[in-house]
Amino acid sequence: MALIEKTKVELGKAHPLDKYLRIERIPTLWCPGCGLGVSLAALLKAIDRRVKEGVLDPKKIVFVTGIGCTARTSFYVGFDAAHTLHGRAVAFATGAKLANPKLELIVLGGDGDIAGIGGNHLIHAARRNMDLLVIMNTNFIYAMTGGQLAPTTPPGLYTTTTPQGSREKPMNVIKLLAAFEVNYVARGSSIYPQLLEQYYYKALGMRGFRFIEVVSTCPEVFGRHIGYRDPVTLYDELKKRVKVKTKPSIEESSLDWDRGIIIGEYIVNDYPGYIELIMGGKK
């Protein structure tokens, strides 16, 4: 207790990124060892860089989230934020962007939210090359509801809805989005936060549809099911599986827990975004 007293600092002045957080809502509800905090810190650093460059105005950033652990992010950031319905964050953000094209829309969600229940919205936003940054936190499970089969769950895994082991194959969202003329598709991981920050930084300076998958750690729920309950062990296990590659091909993008997961920038384009298309080139 004494140690805590001694190290106590004034609220909101502990860290240079505190200005982007609602400090009164910290600590987050995320479990110890969760990758979401790491991912959020990398995102805030990238935003901070873009703000300092004058590319982004913090007053015009809007976070849109659905439902789930990742979706709680909108509670904690000091930007305008909307905590919408499960799966509908991309649709909500599309509407917000159309209403006010000056906004920078950042959609965050888990794989269940973005690719599961909200999958249809995702593919149609990609088809339009809609001017959004979509960040999907892949933790391989429905964590907030207690560990059910998710679209990214590795085959054979025990979950609370597949106690005999899943017989379904996981979804490769990178490959799915490769079917469209989108501007940016990358896969990062919370175990490589610097790299993740680079992807966020790059995407925040681009137009059109940008998608970043964050392969993350969920020791409390996914770790428990796969047998790496301890956060450090799960981190190490994920580190063994994640391989960094410059310019990986789409064929290498499969989300394979056993054979390894390749992270890197899969697609980089500069097509006009939807807003430019409907404005006839005028911004």
Partner: peptide, 8 residues
């Protein structure tokens, strides 16, 4: 079925 609290 699909998970939702408190039905899960």
């Amino acid at each position: 079925a699909y998970p939702i609290t408190p039905q899960t």
